[in-house]
Amino acid sequence: MWKYEKKLQYPVKVSTCNPTLAKYLMEQYGGADGELAAALRYLNQRYTIPEKVIGLLTDIGTEEFAHLEMIATMIYKLTKDATPQQLRDAGLSEHYASHDSALYYENAAGVPFTAAYIQAKGDPIADLYEDIAAEEKARATYQWLIDLSDDPDLNDSLRFLREREVVHSQRFREAVEILKEERDRKKIF
């Protein structure tokens, strides 16, 4: 089961209402390399991965939900005071027509989230390499978002999230080594 904590993992502040930035951030909300895809990918892989890696997938998958909440908070804060005209200027009129100012699991181009973004191969090395690639793609996306953003408060939170991708990638690389070591040991005996 899961337990909700009534706090963000890291503070999220935004300087001004900025629906254009919110639109870009949707890439990390419902996009292919976003936080929802990450959380669902890792938590789903747990059931068929060797025992030594289950804890890591559980804990990183859980942290991704905390990141999803941070992204949601950013989008919420950047759009909550926006007028329909401001949303239209930001290219969000199609979003507004269907969702008003509600959040929706879609990418920056408005494409809805799909489970086709994630894989579950059942092969531990294949799954972990996908996880490493996912973290590196998410890190790159955060870099592009920071480059696009001119909001210093928002960038502080985005930098935190970018660093987390680096740490997760590192831990997944260690998991690969642990599994390789275990496999080689089995061959010897």
Binding site: Y10, L56, V167
Partner: peptide, 22 residues
């Protein structure tokens, strides 16, 4: 107070992931 909690819990998250592989 919330930021102190976030800081302490961040240390925990980092240690948890590290301990998962060490």
């Amino acid at each position: 107070q919330l930021e102190e909690i976030q800081t302490a819990d961040f240390v925990l998250v980092e240690l948890v992931l590290y301990l998962d592989t060490h």
